[in-house]
Design a protein around this nucleic acid. Sequence first.
DNA 1: CAAAACAACTTATGCGCAAAAGTAAGGTGC
DNA 2: GCACCTTACTTTTGCGCATAAGTTGTTTTG
Lengths: 345, 345
Amino acid sequence: MITIKEIAKQLNMSTTTVSNVIHDKEGEVSKEKRRIVQEFLDRVDYVPNINARNLAQNESKIIGVALKARADKYENLIMDPFVSELIGGIEETIRNAGYFMMLYISRDTEKIMRHVSTWNVDGLILFGMLDDDGIRVSTKYKKPIVCIDTYSIEGLKHFTNVGLDDEKGTYEMVKYIISCGHEKIAFMSDNTKGVDLARLTGYKRALKEAGIEFKEEDFLKIRPKSDEIDASLEEICRRALDYTAIMCVSDLYAVTLMSALQDRGIRVPEGISIAGFDDNMLGSLYRPALTTVHQDVKKKGVVAAQTLLKLIKGEKTDHQITLPTRLVVRDTVTKPRKSSFYGFR
Amino acid sequence: MITIKEIAKQLNMSTTTVSNVIHDKEGEVSKEKRRIVQEFLDRVDYVPNINARNLAQNESKIIGVALKARADKYENLIMDPFVSELIGGIEETIRNAGYFMMLYISRDTEKIMRHVSTWNVDGLILFGMLDDDGIRVSTKYKKPIVCIDTYSIEGLKHFTNVGLDDEKGTYEMVKYIISCGHEKIAFMSDNTKGVDLARLTGYKRALKEAGIEFKEEDFLKIRPKSDEIDASLEEICRRALDYTAIMCVSDLYAVTLMSALQDRGIRVPEGISIAGFDDNMLGSLYRPALTTVHQDVKKKGVVAAQTLLKLIKGEKTDHQITLPTRLVVRDTVTKPRKSSFYGFR
DNA sequence: CAAAACAACTTATGCGCAAAAGTAAGGTGC
DNA sequence: GCACCTTACTTTTGCGCATAAGTTGTTTTG
């Protein structure tokens, strides 16, 4: 790899002159010399040594992206289109701004933060990392941080968050379900924290507004670990018969549930209506096509990246940036079955 | 950020001594001093400046991962579980080896190679990047390169490839389809290069072995661009009626086709049998569950990363590493319909 | 017991770059 | 015509680290 020093030597001039041409400094180099140097640079295909440059300038032009790894059967599923799209949006945005992306997939916040400090990354995007532990670790970190889909009240004092109005999205969907005539509507998820809690809350609000009472048993908890998923689905399918519609916290769970119901001869939407949340290909390719709440995941990545770039430049941003959702009506929510008909076949 | 120099000053010793403790050099530092320094390092939570370290050692501990971006309607779909799983496998492997991952998503091989040189990455993993143009650019690159799913004959002289026996996988599937009694079997894909060509070849071999003639029209070409996909599927669905089974080049296309057929009242497998390739969640969650050829995508990533790490260490590896496939028999391939019955409903 | 080897250090150098400080020649203003 | 810019350079410094090359006192060895 050719260095500035070597170039300067071959052209019989100083390194500063060469450096000035590289950095396009106006009025420091004569037209003639500028031309000579530029020609030489192009000819030898000069690329700067980034370590030297960063060392001299004390920056890295790297943005760290940390994703929480999951360890259940659905690891791949959860890493599903959501992560691909998100990363795609982030990568595109930061690359266009001259930054690069360092990807971490881990559950160890502390370790990641250590790496991030080591590499002197200019900023950080966190997805699914911020439990209370993560917050404690990352508040020590001095560079800008943008979180995605974080609901921690404590966290939001310290960080910028890019998220969704999950509550409203679910509220509108459940309202729509109710408008189709349903009264017995369950909610399915695997936890009651963060995003899932917000969506649950929206569901409850819609029920309340329609004068439908929520009972604890209306929350159908799926246990996605590989050794529990089957038993879990078995139980949910049995309990599903008490309802005419189920609001699922994600498209993945909606499709998983539909498959399980289908396997037991219960038809969607004839026997039971199902709604999802996310609007990814899982639901759009399934038949019946899933009625769901749309979110623009790629945009989430783009906005998170743009926000981080602003913070790096020293600009201020809102602490909370909320992207819109949209109802996508397809085929899995219709009017409720007559109580005697489950759609068995 | 505290530096070695500062530590040395505070402890009243030389930077070399501190450095030696950091690098755990045996027999260079006395037990007592080693203890003192180590304690201090722990206390101040020292992290080295990676730019300085890399500059001094002329390495980067970064591995570049370049993915070819797609620009069709299925951009997100193609970026689907495959990419997530692949990246997951790569990231995990290289992180455990003390490396980091720099992710590029682009169609511009030249640009990526330039970045990669700039950053002085220690090695490169390429997926879907190596058309002839890409090969020309990247042969100039001096660091180790591992490709994934590359079939270029020219390329394989220069690089190591991690792939699949696509030909055999498809061959076995089509053989299975034939064993179910099918004779009119189409093949669906969007191109006839690389992986798709290999799978097509396997399909043809199975036909030939069974004494079934392959005609050009048996290749159903899907055009995945957003403005063509619908017309393309319409035509394929019409032509599908001439066959009793369709071997699809991927699970994505298999599920896409099944949805389109379903929308036109043609039932799978009653009216037509469908087989896929990849075995991702798209097919396993669909109902009827997709009969497909399994490949372990995460392992592909792991093996690619391990291979690259070997090359970086200077070890030799095979030019071609082939992972196994496995037939996954589920519900979309059964015996052929009686010629009068298309399963319409 | 002198020469050689060794243990435990320190000093000095250089990685490639950016940028501050220095230089020298020619121009400008009053 | 002297002080003061300006232009177009060069020399020097230092970022933080690793390491080669020195230094000193102690032990081993033939």
